[in-house]
Write a protein that binds this DNA or RNA. Structure first.
Lengths: 233, 233
DNA sequence: CGACGCATAGTGGTCCGACCAATTCGGCGA
DNA sequence: TCGCCGAATTGGTCGGACCACTATGCGTCG
């Protein structure tokens, strides 16, 4: 059946590559159901244990989805699925790399906000406003953080680039922001944050891309500079 | 030993979270060796099979590294390790999402090139020149592609943000570019590519960030527009 | 005749035990 | 003292068994 394959790496690693190749070549379509673990293992001539490790690996990468009792399916392969793992980068990064991540976020967030200013619909703008007012109406840090995340998520979605939005989602993962903002907010940065959010919102309402870009860059840049100062001494 | 943990998700998933948490909390340092698979499984009260799946998952994410006969180690947790999986996104994306990926790359590449113009050292600049001349001296598409990748990689490295460089590396993964450029180059885009690379190099030599940014944006933008046109009709 | 409910086969999830293969390190001998 | 060899350690693979959940279809009941 399967000719002698070059013995590179572990059998599990080879199985991962094989399945990835099948998807890349279009032999497996998004949403399609795969053969059973037992059949797949037999096809590649490996044990079910090894095949399960390969499937698990592709599952955490957001490529496959295993439904207990039903089968294994290819995900929709949308940006959100595949970039979900981006969050672990943010969660496991410390020190200087946090600043680098914020720098990347500043660049992408400012671009996305600028694009959003030109493209945002009335409905989307209303949603943004909802989170803005909700954020200013409470004192619970948890709730503020949640609405803050939603505020930026709505804007990123309005930019019309799902891939960019998914990356920004990862760069703003809950634990990441919680870690950085814990200290930032303790220095009374609430007022400043509100001003900056208001500026972003104003630029969006005015459909002014350049102002929106600048406001978003300044917003993220503030946190970035604060964090840089924290790490300096 | 371990109290009743809430039964959320599979045991493997829980094991993944546990190990991730250990690293995030600093109980496991980069480069440190973990207990054996058998010991880890016993500690979390699960079977070795399940623990192996968890380890395999964290291995493909670039968090852990298993050395046959030696043990399991935490990686250096550098940007390159954790963002290696970014390449699969590029490899498995098709259609409109390729354009989105190129848009993200245009934004980051132009920023990185602009930063590089201000920070690049003489040695790094010499390395960039080496790949530029080598790229223009051959007709072999494979070799051109390799030097093209190295050209941009050196520039990204000179920008001083390892995280950004790692993301760009993923966005320029070999199979990704090979797929897009196959058609692009067939339309006689070689000359244009050379001109654009020369323009980038000139801006770097002149230490002109704004010119470098513009040249890089135009360079990626060209491919982006071509691809957009391909998908349109 | 149709809708509901239960039995059953199918499928992923977990566990166990065994053996293989690569590394490591200590002791033995030249 | 140096080098080699073998045993212990440890990850890699395999096969089988059983559990948990789904889906399907058949039979029953309204």
């Amino acid at each position: 059946m399967d000719e002698a394959a070059p013995q590179k790496g572990t059998v599990t690693q080879r199985a991962i590559e094989r399945i990835k190749a099948m998807i890349a070549e279009g032999r497996l379509e998004p949403g399609q159901r795969l053969p059973t673990e037992r059949d797949l293992a037999a096809q590649l001539g490996i044990s079910r244990s090894s095949m399960r490790e390969a499937i698990r690996a592709l599952t955490v990468l957001g490529v496959l989805e295993a439904r207990h009792g039903s089968g294994i399916y290819v995900t929709a392969l949308e940006a959100g699925d595949l970039l979900e793992t981006f969050g672990v980068v943010a969660d496991l990064s410390r020190g200087p790399r946090l600043v680098e991540l914020l720098e990347v976020r500043r660049i992408l967030e400012s671009t996305a906000t600028g694009l959003a200013a030109a493209r945002i619909t009335e409905d989307q703008l209303a949603e943004v406003e909802k989170h803005l007012t909700a954020m200013n109406a409470t004192d619970d840090p948890e709730e503020i953080l949640a609405h803050d995340l939603a505020f930026h998520r709505e804007i990123a979605a309005a930019a019309g680039n799902d891939t960019m939005a998914a990356i920004l989602e990862g760069l703003s993962s809950r634990t990441f922001r919680a870690r950085v903002w814990r200290g930032y907010q303790e220095e009374g940065a609430f007022a400043r944050t509100r001003r900056e959010h208001a500026a972003i919102h104003r630029a969006l309402c005015a459909r002014d891309p350049e102002a929106a870009r600048a406001a978003a860059a300044a917003h993220v840049g503030e946190v970035e500079e604060w964090l840089r100062a924290q790490l300096g001494p």
